[in-house]
Amino acid sequence: MTGPREKTSVGQISLIVAVQLALLAAWELLARSGALGISVPALSRVLQVYAQPRFAALLYRSAMATGKSALTGLLIGIVIGIVTAMVAHLLRPLRPGLDRLAVTINAIPAVALGPIFILMVSRELTPSLLATIPVSFLIYIAVSSGLRTASTGLGRMMTTFGAGKVKRLFYLEIPSALPSFLGGVKVSMTAAMIGAIVGEWFGAPTGLGIVILNTMQNFEIPLMWAAVLLVAGLALTGYGIAHLLERLVTRRFA
């Protein structure tokens, strides 16, 4: 969160940790007492799932499949997003149409696109493609607004030095767009996971989305929670990596 950076004391940090632990303990105790109903198992029961070799192997295999789809979607989406944003930036007349197209494609419900992709490509590739769409949209928005933030004063200075459109793009606009781009990557992490999981629901052979759906229908509640927590963990890891990258770059360019 933005705002003035104030130092957090050791006492405050330990208090924060204590509150988090208390929340987890409350979950455990309430769930054990049965106050949360049968659908919310105790935390310890969820954690036990990870310790059972049979489930651990299933979760590992599924996480690998989902992670691969999400990552593929992320990379393709980033490339598409950057290229489209560059085209819109260099060929101004195309921009309004591209903007509208991006918003519309992003507004297509994933549940409707799934069947089309299955038909057009394959069941295995659908999760990656569904992850690609929101990522390309987010990156397109982030990069094109980033390219526009380049300071006009510096731009004029470069024009005075006789720099052409392409030189300006490489020396001024791309560096100024970097922080915005990385912000886009950060929010894309969760979006890519969502796309991959919805994609799996349309019949991918393996993946965490499949595990979640099957366990929901078979009342294997602790396994369902274990899978959801795993998805959250993966998304959070991706978010964390992007956040670190962003901080590194912002320090260099801001």
């Binding site: 992490m189 969760t190 996971m193 969502i194 999981i197 965490l208 959801v228 998805v231 959250a232 998304a235």
Partner: peptide, 9 residues
């Protein structure tokens, strides 16, 4: 950060 669609089930 938990993908919201996962939370639906």
């Amino acid at each position: 950060s938990t993908p919201v669609v996962c939370l639906i089930p």
